[in-house]
């Protein structure tokens, strides 16, 4: 196993407010890492630091290093290139108000792929990888907003996969979905793990226990504990982790 991400002494500020405090973390390639913690603990903020999504917010300041395959993502890699290497799936399904095809082809088109045959191939491959090809292959020209929430979320995953990312960041991807759709997305994550690294923020402890290899527990901007999922959920070293996973707070 090799390190995909190395996070060293990461501090992050929203103006005067420090949202992340001295986070150190090594994320391995082709694993699922779950980030858990109560609301406002900084786990989503941390996730959004990894593909520089926080750049869009006014007054954000990042200190420390985040290395992707040894390269500093704030210095060595162009941000658009970085975001093609690191895909992102959001909490609420957010397909564009256009056809399923155009949604999935959006990323490749943004990076200059114009040939229809090539796009067709990418779209089909991405939809198959997101395990939704069979459901939408007859409605590929229909507006993606006409699909169900669970299908929309998998379209968004297909859209992220279309640019062939090495890492997929998932920000509570199932919190707006019904249980069956949730299971489908979880199965999909485990399937995708064969090729790519997945980092998932979740509020659902069972979900973290079910699908992740490693789990990180955040509290008030600090990384409290980061270990094998089995260990975190059976014999956590920190009292605060134990309190959280046994439901005593959060």
């Amino acid at each position: 196993m090799v390190n995909k991400f190395s996070i060293k002494n990461l501090d992050m500020y929203y103006g005067d407010f420090q949202a992340l405090i001295n986070v150190n973390m090594e994320i391995l390639d082709k694993e699922i890492t779950a980030l858990i913690g109560p609301s406002g603990c900084g786990k989503s903020t941390f996730l959004r630091t990894l593909n520089r999504m926080n750049d869009l917010i006014e007054g954000v300041r990042v200190e420390g290093e985040i290395l992707l395959d040894g390269e500093n993502i704030y210095k060595d890699i162009d941000v658009t290139k970085l975001r093609t290497r690191i895909g992102m799936v959001f909490q609420k399904p957010n397909p564009f108000p256009m056809s399923v095809y155009d949604n999935v082809a959006y990323g490749p088109r943004a990076h200059g792929i114009k040939k229809k045959a090539e796009l067709d191939e990418i779209v089909e491959k991405s939809l198959r990888r997101a395990a939704i090809w069979d459901e939408v292959k007859d409605r590929i020209k229909k507006n993606a907003l006409s699909l169900s929430g669970g299908q929309q979320q998998r379209i968004c995953i297909a859209r992220a996969l279309a640019v062939d990312p090495e890492v997929l960041l998932m920000d509570e991807p199932t919190s707006a979905l019904d249980p069956i759709s949730t299971l489908k997305v979880e199965d999909l994550a485990e399937e995708l793990k064969k090729d790519i690294t997945i980092i998932i923020v979740t509020h659902n402890m069972q979900q973290a226990a079910r699908i992740s290899d490693k789990t990180a527990f955040f509290l008030n901007g600090e990384l409290i504990e980061f270990d094998e999922t089995d260990i975190i959920f059976s014999v956590p070293k920190d009292k605060r982790t134990e309190d959280y996973i046994t439901g005593r707070f959060g």
Binding site: L56, R83, G107, A160
Partner: peptide
Amino acid sequence: VPDSYREASFGLGAN
């Protein structure tokens, strides 16, 4: 226009 559209687009590396 929902901000989620902007996020999704930037998240795909579009400028």
